[in-house]
Amino acid sequence: MHRSGVTMAWNVFRFCTALRGLGSIMILLVLGVVGVTYYAVVLTNYGPALYEGGLDSVTALAVVILFHCLLVMLLWSYFSVVFTDPGSVPPNWRPVVDEETGGADVLNGSEFSALHSEPSNQRIRYCRKCAQPKPPRCHHCSVCGRCVLKMDHHCVWVVNCVGALNYKFFLLFLFYTFLETTLVTLALLPHFIAFFSDGEIPGTPGTLATTFLAFVLNLAFALSVLGFLIMHISLVAANTTTIEAYEKKTTPKWRYDLGRRKNFEQVFGTDRRYWFLPAYSDEDLRKIPALQGLEYPSKPDFDSQEV
């Protein structure tokens, strides 16, 4: 029994290590798909069409401009997720209120010291792996090896955890990826259909193969990302994360569900100018504690309902 437990822990460690190594490859894969797509759309098909004149040139210009705008936003959002720390527990952070269970007792110094001798204390959440208390909605990531504020999941595509400080950027990455891949799919659809026609198709075998590959890849990404986007929109609407949605399956009420508009503002802020940008206004960062990942408002009548 003990032997199998050690084997399981070792296998999990190997799996987490493999995910860390896989991350760099995934970034290169993303850039590779972007490169193939750029070659097929801009350099092979719609770039040359700019010089043909007439309606074809106008259509090509519209496609090229929209393609580049979405690509800039996609890459900006993507690298914002990659390089933004999702949020870690500050050194010497001390819980004041039991946020998870709704208790209103202040945790004094002697009670906090008792945590080190009694980590099983249920009054606050405590991470045995990090040997520290956990803020509300915080979870330990086995891949990163640390606690992450409002952790949603660890994403190998971005080589990072998705948490409180980069969740908005991740959603925008999904949003702009869906728009970009949908645009590419529609733009290359006539060329894809031409592959199966009896007429002669202009271009070299290499350019034709690249166009075919770009169409298939972007169609696959558009369909798969759409599913993730719909799922995360529903999570934002309920002010929950992927982990919390799984954990509270048997919970009829959710203390952090403040209504769709306020739930949305907990992730995107209140300044509409920044809603579609992977950034926040200084005012939102000052006025909305949830954007810092440590404090979250809950329903004012939640405690009375629980009683």
Rank of each mutant, 00 (worst) to 15 (best):
L22M: 08
A279R: 05
T37F: 01
G5Y: 07
A220S: 01
A62H: 14
V81D: 09
T182H: 05
L223M: 11
F264L: 09
H154Y: 02
H140Y: 15
L74G: 00
P48D: 08
R286H: 07
G53D: 06
L61C: 10
Y78P: 03
T59N: 14
L71V: 10
G32F: 00
F268H: 00
V106I: 14
E306Q: 07
F302C: 00
V42P: 03
E52P: 04
V36N: 08
C69V: 14
I65H: 04
L107A: 10
G199Q: 14
P86K: 11
G203Y: 01
F212I: 09
M73Y: 11
Y274A: 07
G206H: 03
S57D: 13
C130R: 06
P119S: 03
L223V: 15
A131V: 09
E306W: 03
L294N: 02
P278M: 02
L74P: 00
L28S: 08
R125P: 01
V72F: 02
G47I: 15
P135K: 09
C127P: 02
L179P: 00
N166C: 06
F195G: 07
E111R: 12
T270E: 13
L115H: 10
T37C: 05
I193F: 03
W157S: 01
F178V: 14
L188V: 08
W254Q: 11
G35I: 13
R94P: 04
R261T: 04
T210I: 13
E99R: 12
A60S: 13
D56E: 15
I27E: 09
L75W: 04
C138T: 15
Y274Q: 03
D284A: 04
L70H: 02
E180F: 11
A290L: 09
K249G: 07
A237T: 11
L43S: 15
S304P: 00
S304V: 05
L213A: 13
D282V: 13
V236Q: 05
N121H: 12
L189N: 14
P252R: 05
S88W: 08
V159E: 10
F15A: 10
A9D: 06
K168A: 04
S77A: 07
K253S: 06
A104H: 10
Q292C: 09
F83H: 05
V12Q: 13
G145S: 06
L66Y: 05
A114H: 08
G47S: 10
F83I: 13
